[in-house]
Design a protein around this nucleic acid. Structure first.
Length: 584
DNA sequence: GCCGTTTTCGGCCCGACTGTTTTCAGTCG
């Protein structure tokens, strides 16, 4: 079993214990373990080999034993036992807004309801209103929740949420008396998917801000409309929450609503131990019964009171950032302004919409010093992949573009398919003509994990390959990543000096944050590229930078933060090993 | 179930909102 599967088992155990009404602290232990495991950069099996399971924070004797059980047998007796008591289908019931563990317990015990379908039927039949603690309004709310779940599913891609949030904020700035305004929540942390959009503002006239917010064109339904908090469902099906806070609580509220939940829980635990209290209004020193407010206007104050440095939102997942802050060893995360070039983009020569010159001009306008134009290779028929002849014809056009757009280096490059057997889509002598070779998988996604791993590692062993693009092939929300042993791929990349891409397109974000962090640990050099298929998509770079930041990466970990000459020297092709191998 | 230079037992984050209530439980973030 892999880490994600084991994390899922513990998450289910936590939920099932919660439904049973078990000790909430025991529930939390399983939930915390689940989240910690999901964010680990290394496989549990490897950690176990070294006998270090107990060293993972939140993993004690009991859970370590269950991890071993899961690794050995693929099952966990306690989990199986719980599932015999409560059917697995209750998990989807919990996705309905307003339905929590207590309600599920009630529905299951009193009415034998364990699926969303039977819940809907019972609500329509008016059977819920007679249950203790439930009433007619709750019944209607559950029906609405089911409809919303069916219509829109759960989470939104970061890219779509970003556009929507920008739109809302631009609108509020125009029509309402807002002072400070920032997105909070998972959007501010730049998570790859967003549950709902949180926006925080300060204003002298909150009612007007709320009024403007609930009357936006993009509002499909007003879910709540109060003086300090309003929630709407947008026409895109994304929930957006707006909160107005007092200026003196701005920092406290921003910290609080940015989360993550685990980060906040950990932080407040520290606060209590140090004699402080944190909430969305400020940080307070607790003296017996009295509380003295010691900060809250600026976010920094919330951390400083606990002896911690302020930390970027992208780090706030409780995966070691609090310990790092305490010890003064937070990374200096890479920033968009560090990026000097973009090494994956497509032109009209394959499936892009713009000419070479248009792409170069757009990249230059963003301040880049170099780009690689990586049109597709011959096998990508549907993407107008280039034959060797067209590739050579394009080389002449690139030469012209270099003259037409001075001040930016244009690398003659290609995104070359890794074929089913791990060979590349152009012969070696053709690859040798290129300035930069990016390899990637576009077919055979259903291969076994072993086969896919061998295929990719073999491709990386080709000395002409400089970098691996979108290493798992996933499309967030649409296509699962193919099965591959990422640890083996990253180890091969580190050994061979091949760079690995963080694809910045918000549908991909591939490498994802956790893998990027692992890549750094293994000494793999990273590229952040947009994979732009039009000039305007070059601006998606910041999503890739955010993913790198979530992986704790600094500018020095990323090749395309280097000036051109050093960038070229850092590519695998500049390494002496490559020449030796070629002669041999 | 986890954890500890104030503890190996006794703690474990905090508040708002809603609906069903008569003082509070459940959900959410």
């Amino acid at each position: 079993m892999n880490n994600a599967e084991i994390a899922e088992v513990f998450s289910q155990i936590a939920t099932l214990l919660e439904i049973k009404g078990e000790n909430p602290f025991r529930v939390r232990s399983y939930r915390r373990a689940s989240e910690t495991i999901a964010n680990l950069t290394e496989d549990l099996s490897a950690i176990r080999e070294r006998g270090e399971l107990r060293g993972i924070p939140g993993i004690g004797a009991a859970i370590a034993g269950k991890i071993e059980e899961l690794l050995d047998t693929g099952k966990c007796a306690q989990h199986q036992e719980l599932l015999r008591e409560i059917p697995e289908t209750v998990f989807e019931m919990l996705e309905v807004q307003g339905v929590g563990p207590k309600t599920v317990k009630l529905l299951w015990e009193k009415l034998g309801i364990a699926t969303v379908e039977s819940l809907e039927e019972a609500a329509r039949g008016g059977l819920l209103r007679d249950l203790p603690g439930l009433g007619e309004k709750t019944e209607q709310e559950i029906l609405r929740g089911i409809q919303r779940l069916r219509e829109y599913g759960e989470r939104t891609n970061l890219g779509a949420a970003w556009v929507l949030a920008r739109g809302i904020m631009d609108h509020l700035r125009e029509c309402a008396p807002v002072e400070r305004m920032e997105p909070a929540g998972s959007l501010r942390r730049m998570k790859e998917t967003i549950g709902d959009i949180d926006i925080l503002v300060t204003s002298q006239r909150p009612e007007e801000v709320m009024e403007c917010f609930v009357k936006m064109d993009c509002v499909a339904q007003v879910l709540a409309h109060g003086p300090t908090k309003s929630s709407v469902l947008t026409t895109e099906g994304v929930q957006a929450d707006l909160r107005v806070v007092a200026p003196e609580s701005w920092g406290a509220a921003l910290q609080y609503f940015t989360g993550s939940k685990q980060h906040n829980v950990h932080l407040r635990d520290l606060a209590v131990r140090a004699g402080f209290k944190l909430n969305e209004y400020g940080v307070f020193r607790v003296k017996g019964k009295r509380e003295e407010r010691v900060g809250g206007e600026r976010e920094e104050e919330m951390y400083q009171a606990l002896g911690l440095e302020w930390m970027p939102p992208e780090l706030r997942e409780d995966t070691g950032e609090i310990e790092a802050a305490r010890e003064g060893r937070l990374p200096r995360l890479v920033e968009l302004s560090d990026i000097k070039g973009d090494l994956q983009m497509h032109s009209e020569w394959s499936d892009g919409h713009n000419t070479l010159i248009e792409m170069a001009r757009a990249a230059k306008a963003l301040g880049y010093r170099y780009i690689a134009v990586t049109d597709h290779s011959v096998s990508e028929v549907q993407a107008n992949g280039m034959s060797v002849e067209r590739l050579r014809a394009r080389a002449a056009e690139i030469e012209k573009a270099r003259k037409a757009v001075p001040g930016i280096a244009i690398l003659n490059a290609a995104e070359v398919d890794i074929k089913g057997d791990g060979s590349l889509d152009y012969p070696d002598e053709v690859l040798a003509e290129l300035d930069f070779v990016l390899a990637s998988v576009h077919s055979g996604f259903k291969a076994t994990r072993d086969a896919m791993t061998r295929r990719i590692v073999k491709a990386l062993e080709n000395p002409h390959v400089d970098a691996l693009a979108h290493p798992t092939g996933r499309l967030i929300g649409r296509r699962e990543p193919y099965e591959v042993d990422m640890e083996a791929v990253l180890e091969a990349a580190a050994r061979l000096g091949v760079a690995v891409e963080i694809n910045a397109h918000p549908d991909r974000l591939d490498l994802k944050d956790v893998h990027a962090r692992r890549a750094k640990e293994l000494g793999v050099k990273i590229l952040i590229n947009t994979d732009a298929h039009s000039a305007d998509q070059l601006s998606l770079m910041h999503f890739g930078v955010a993913t790198a930041r979530r992986g704790w990466l600094e500018a020095a970990d990323i090749l395309n933060t280097l000036p051109l000459a050093r960038f070229k020297r850092s590519l695998r092709r500049a390494r002496p090993g490559r020449k030796r191998r070629r002669r041999g």
